[in-house]
């Protein structure tokens, strides 16, 4: 049985060390700017921190994958070029990219460093993935969370590169790398500025009855009753009033997290090469719990044992979890 790589998130050097200690095979992280899709305030790595963190990871046999997975606009390419150059200088093991310009730069400048295609590229068909593999030498594709396990198995037979799938965390079903909801509301782009629902535009208003209203800029996204679980303040997970609907409802998707603990054997059998845990914006407590749980589960499966699956529901958005489209296209 093929041993899948466990790819884990790190938003800070402390989280990276936590992931390494908890058994990550690889850690993915980014710099403190728009070159990656978790450009949140106070998060990510300075160049000095990145250099020290890569050394720490390598000392412990863990790979570092640098996320450079946003889309540069005209006149801003230098920022992405610098990120790639620094990553190469610090010895990262792969670049995770979405933009073809960035991919081309890596291919031409650092042909010996692996290229992984970010989920932000939204490549889900054999044709699209083969294009990236052929033109840029992409070695691994991170699949959007829209395919069933049988579809992934079929895809694995038709593409010349490795497959990485998300197994835990955010359940993003928008066409990733194409979503402009945040841009529409705040003027900042998830895809070009790396920030979905910028915190500066997020407002929580507690009402006298204990309910909480969530706003992004001038738009009310949701209102949670005092005893109701909450979700992230993103437009795609908002609850809205709409014509022909008696009550407000989740028009796009619900606050819920992906948890594929129960599908790990099927994913390995389908030919998945790497399992990704989402959550660079989360704490090191999250990293420790999620990475430890999946390390144990994957090792049990590889040892031919029934995996012990830790209860991770407390970490999930809205305290709900799903196997999403991986289980069935009728998941919702």
């Amino acid at each position: 049985m093929k041993r899948p790589e466990l790819v884990c998130p790190a938003g800070t050097p402390a989280a990276l060390r936590t992931a390494v200690e908890a058994g990550a095979d690889a850690v993915y992280c980014g710099f403190q700017n728009a070159t990656n899709a978790r450009n949140f305030p106070g998060l990510n790595f300075t160049p000095e921190e990145m250099q020290a963190s890569v050394a720490h990871a390598h000392d412990h046999g863990t790979k570092v994958l640098l996320a450079v997975n946003t889309f540069p606009t005209a006149g801003r390419f230098n920022l992405w070029r610098e990120a790639v150059d620094m990553g190469a200088r610090f010895g990262v093991d792969a670049f995770i990219v979405a933009d073809i310009g960035v991919a081309d730069y890596v291919k031409r400048t650092y042909p010996d460093i692996r290229l992984h295609l970010s989920v932000q590229a939204a490549a889900s068909s054999p044709e699209a993935i083969r294009y990236y593999a052929r033109e840029f030498g992409v070695k691994r594709v991170v699949l959007p969370r829209i395919l069933t396990v049988p579809e992934i198995k079929q895809l694995a037979r038709e593409i010349p590169c490795e497959i990485e799938t998300f197994i835990f965390g955010n359940h993003g079903l928008m066409v990733e790398g194409r979503c402009s909801l945040t841009n529409y509301v705040t003027g900042l782009s998830t895809n070009m500025d790396g920030v979905c629902s910028p915190a500066a535009d997020v407002h929580y208003d507690k009402q006298a009855d204990g309910s909480v209203t969530t706003r992004l800029a001038d738009f009310t996204i949701d209102s949670f009753a005092p005893d109701e679980q909450a979700g992230y303040p993103t437009i795609c997970k908002g609850r809205y009033n709409a014509p022909n609907r008696p009550d407000a409802y989740y028009a796009f998707e619900e606050p819920i997290s992906l948890n594929l603990s129960g599908l790990l054997p099927a994913l390995i059998e389908a030919g998945v090469d790497a399992f990704k845990i989402e959550g660079r914006q989360r704490s090191r407590a999250y990293v420790k719990s999620a990475v430890s749980a999946f390390r144990k589960a994957v090792d049990s499966i590889l040892a031919g044992q029934e995996p012990e699956l830790a209860d991770l529901i407390a970490l999930t958005e809205g305290q709900k979890q799903t196997e999403g489209a991986f289980k069935t296209k009728k998941w919702r």
Binding site: F224, D227, A230, G231, R282, L315
Partner: peptide
Amino acid sequence: DGGADGDALFFSR
């Protein structure tokens, strides 16, 4: 203490 996750505490209200 680094023992709790802020997002999880927010989700659970």
